[in-house]
Simulated scan of single mutants.
Amino acid sequence: MEPILTISNLTKKFGYLTAVKDLTFTINKGNVYGILGPNGSGKSTTLGIVLNVVNKTAGDFKWFDGTVSTHDALKRVGAIIERPNFYPYMTAYQNLKLVCKIKGVDYKNIDEKLDIVGLLDRKDHKFKTYSLGMKQRLAIASALLNDPEILILDEPTNGLDPQGIHQIRGIIKKIASEGTTILLASHLLDEVEKVCSHVVVLRKGERLYSGRVDEMISSHGFFELKCEDNKRLIRQLENDSTFGIIKEENGLITAFLNEPLEASEFNKLLFESGIVLSHLVKRKESLEDQFLKLTDNN
């Protein structure tokens, strides 16, 4: 695996507040990474540090193989970490020409990037006439002008309507399929599950999980259960090593599996123990279930 960004024991304090705490993870080439966490978990601060707009308190980070300066490395990075900010009375094409001048990039890239984000037919329309979703797509086109090796997006679908969200996610997948590494920060579990191959879960600035999304949700699932005597059923489950976390809410028991177990086999075992279920459903854990388990005790 070829590393693009390596973060080692990164810490950022704002006075008494620790926004990022001893954070370590690596972004490898060719994947879509999600930094997942609720608002205030340190996602934007982490991105700000590696993009040189926020100073770190402790720890370190290095771009690529570590032999290039951050200034030179950022020429190979595309990023959107704030709301798109273009000149309202200039067209999309004129705005991107200005970005090309600033980045020292040839104008010939503009049409190609507008086509990627689905705005080529609107290139001569003024920015002020664009919807919020179109503005966000233009910002992505702008970030792609220097053909970056990694594209960094902070909450890319924030504030968009369902159609806008769908379009942005489709664009992210398309860019990734062409070999660009992507790092996006999001508080939306659904977004990370649908778009990302890897995830780093943050809570109060600390890393709770780092790895593949499919490995995070490749558990054995869980049962939803009800019977006339839930207390007896819970005792039975607690004495069985097949089960891990067991919860009861509004009369419904949720029992997470530590190992494979079919619903029919489980039902039979309970029946033989004198427990008759009135409700039995086996479900696969979603990223949300795993996220809630990770953050439950934090």
Rank of each mutant, 00 (worst) to 15 (best):
K204S: 14
M216Q: 02
L188N: 10
H198G: 01
L202R: 09
I245S: 12
N230L: 07
Y209V: 00
F243G: 05
R232A: 11
S197K: 07
H187M: 09
L188M: 15
H198L: 03
L237M: 05
I234H: 08
D190Q: 09
H198K: 09
D240W: 04
E215M: 00
H220D: 04
K226T: 00
C227D: 06
S218A: 14
G221T: 07
V195K: 04
F223M: 08
L237K: 07
I234V: 15
F222H: 11
G251K: 12
S186V: 08
F243H: 09
R232N: 04
E206G: 15
H220E: 05
E191R: 03
K194Q: 05
E224C: 01
I253M: 10
Q236V: 11
R212Q: 05
S210I: 02
L188K: 13
L189R: 09
S219A: 03
S241N: 12
E248W: 15
V201C: 14
E224Y: 11
L225R: 03
D229P: 03
E215S: 06
N250F: 06
F223W: 03
V213L: 07
F222V: 03
D214F: 00
R212D: 03
N230T: 14
E206N: 05
E191D: 10
R212E: 05
G244D: 09
L233I: 10
R212L: 10
L252Q: 13
L208P: 06
T242H: 12
K247L: 15
E249Y: 11
I217P: 11
V201K: 02
N250Q: 13
K247H: 13
D214A: 02
Y209H: 01
N250S: 12
V199P: 02
V213T: 02
G244P: 06
F243C: 06
F243P: 04
L189Q: 12
I246H: 08
G211V: 01
E215A: 11
D190R: 10
S197R: 08
C196P: 00
N230G: 04
V213G: 02
H198I: 05
L202Y: 13
I246M: 15
I234Q: 07
L184W: 13
S186H: 11
D229W: 04
I246N: 11
I217S: 11
E215G: 07
H198D: 13
F222K: 06
L208E: 04
D229H: 08
E215C: 06
G221M: 08
Q236D: 13
C196W: 09
I245H: 14
L233F: 08
R207W: 01
E249V: 09
S197H: 08
V200Q: 06
V200P: 00
R232S: 06
R203F: 12
E249A: 14
I246Q: 12
Y209F: 03
R207P: 01
K247V: 12
S210V: 01
S241A: 10
F222D: 02
D214Y: 01
V213S: 04
I246D: 14
A185V: 01
E206H: 14
I253K: 11
L237V: 06
D229K: 02
E224M: 10
G244W: 10
E191W: 12
F223L: 01
S219R: 08
G251F: 11
R212P: 00
E206K: 15
R203C: 13
F223R: 01
E215N: 07
K247T: 15
I245V: 15
L184P: 07
G205F: 15
S219W: 02
E248A: 14
D240I: 06
V213K: 00
